[in-house]
């Protein structure tokens, strides 16, 4: 066990905060797409940076990735990656209710990602009496080196990261999207402090 590991209680508490946030994000997604979103139990794991990229690679069946940074009070921050499985542009426009040439494919991906990320993180933040601000979402190439570079460019220390993975499955459209939150090591201890405050009430 190192300083960044979560205890069983901390893990449980974080998972419950995430459950509530993903429930509301999926409700938004369901309303936006006018469909039902199937949720699974989220996964939370701590990874070393060299393995982080391996584990992302393992997850990467995605053809489009949108990345958005988040910054809260008390040093809570990280990067949210929205990873989409193959989906063609006209199908996405149809899903989102746009005319075929109303928005480019890239703009549509960014639009949808921003809704999911900000809904999720706003609900997450409100539960811990925090407030998030966001960097502009960026569509990344699915080339792993590009993602690696993008993450390394953030001015965080990424030796260790907390990796939270949430799957949103829209079964009737075969539309799948994974939200991966990467929380750099310097923010993990800040999250742990917030969680400990919640746990102290129980």
């Amino acid at each position: 066990m190192n300083a960044f590991d979560l205890t069983e209680d901390q893990h449980d508490c974080l998972q419950e905060l995430i459950n509530v946030a993903m429930g509301q994000a999926s409700d938004q997604l369901a309303r936006y797409l006018d469909t039902f979103v199937y949720l699974k139990v989220p996964s939370i794991e701590q990874v070393r940076s060299e393995l982080l990229f391996d584990s992302l690679n393992h997850d990467l069946k995605a053809t489009s990735i949108v990345s958005q940074g988040f910054f809260g009070y008390e040093g809570i921050r990280g990067e949210a990656l929205l990873m989409y499985q193959p989906l063609d542009s006209s199908r996405l426009a149809d899903l989102l209710g746009y005319e075929a040439d109303e928005l480019s494919f890239d703009e549509q991906m960014i639009d949808l990602s921003s809704i999911l990320t900000t809904t999720f993180l706003n609900v997450f933040a409100s539960q811990i009496d925090n407030q998030m601000s966001y960097s502009a979402p960026r569509l990344l190439s699915t080339n792993l080196n590009t993602i690696n570079q993008h993450i390394q460019q953030q001015s965080f220390n990424w030796d260790y990261a907390l990796k939270v993975r949430i799957s949103y499955q829209v079964t009737d459209y075969s539309f799948n999207c994974d939200m991966v939150l990467l929380i750099p090591e310097e923010a993990i201890s800040n999250i742990k402090a917030v969680i400990d405050r919640i746990l102290a009430d129980f």
Binding site: G23, Q24, S26, D27, F36, V37, L39, Q127
Partner: peptide
């Protein structure tokens, strides 16, 4: 008592006989 607050989920749960649906938190 669930965080999955989609209206369709609430309907499914009530159709399966649950007496009430309470949102988390």
């Amino acid at each position: 008592i669930s965080a999955d607050v989609q209206p369709e989920m609430q309907n499914r749960v009530l159709a399966l006989g649950a007496k009430a649906f309470l949102r988390k938190p």
